[in-house]
Amino acid sequence: MTLPATLQSNRITFDDPLSVQEHFHSRGWTDGLPIVPPTPDAVTACLDWAGLPAEHLVGVEPVRGRGLTAEKIAVNAVMAGCLPMHFPVVVTAVAAMLAEPFLLHGSTASTGGSAILLIVNGPIRNEIGMDATFNALGPSDRASTCIGRAVRLVLGNLLEVRPGEIDRSTFGHPGKISWCMAEDEEHSPWISLAEERLGDPHVSAVTAMAAMAPRQLMNEWTTDPEEILDTFVAEIKANMRHYSIWAGNYAIVIPPQLRQHFAAAGWSKSDIQNYVFEQARIRRGEWADCGKGAIVHGKDDQEYAALPDPSHLLVIAAGGPAGGFGAVIPPWLGHKSRAATMAVGACVDC
């Protein structure tokens, strides 16, 4: 099935692909890296693969009331280097980000500088060649890199989330170039993040989170789940002291070398969530220890939990086979943006 006649975007003709690059860069339509020219055929191939008509409304950005169509998302996905088979994940990611509790506008405009972290679950990970092992939080494979980049180009080109325009980040972080990862369901003793959040063990799904840069930790000198988690908790508490005290969605990434200890001890994701919920707390007075005494306001003993409840901890199995490392990924700013999970292929307006 081809739908070329339905494409609505303005068409621009160039003498050669290099001219396309320079035109797109000069208009601020790229992230500075080379793009794949979004030809009508390439865009149509994406739409065909996902079975979406060009005018399909993927979602509406709630603050501005701006609708994002499948066609415009496909144009940006092609530019990012996506193959047609990647496109359903991009569409799902955008739909998840447009869910109202995600607060896309606030999280992408804020001086806080969060990136959008995408976590992919289910059979589609393997179908499109995502790799949840080596370099899991970096560029691990083509699909992950291109999907994460597509989302960033969508933000820039369809919502003007560009530095100094809507995006007012003081620093930002490298995850804003592209940040997409798969969960290592095959080598995990646990239910997947998608099953936990959607209740379906077979679903392919994307979870989007407004995420600060990952904070890496190391503890390979114990097999005790509580001691391992104490290191994660210490990192969460450091974030609460140094960055933001407010409770929200934290993600923790646990690699195989540490997962085996949880499996041996019979610890589920739920056990991990409950332990972290109880332990990851600081007193407001601790701010005075790190130069922020001005905002303690005499409430030294007031206690703050990192998580509103245990389910706000996203426990993700990923990482290369060796290394007793872990990562804590803090939320943009407490509960102001909530992680959103959406099934691939779910229709949001029917």
């Binding site: 303005n10 003709t13 160039f14 050669d16 030809t39 501005r64 609708g67 144009v75 940006n76």
Partner: peptide, 20 residues
């Protein structure tokens, strides 16, 4: 050989439908 590409931007002014 020329190459035809599509405009990647929203392309219809900056305002959204909710702002009329």
């Amino acid at each position: 050989m020329s190459i035809e590409v599509l405009d990647p931007t929203y392309g219809d002014g900056l305002a959204g439908a909710g702002s009329q």
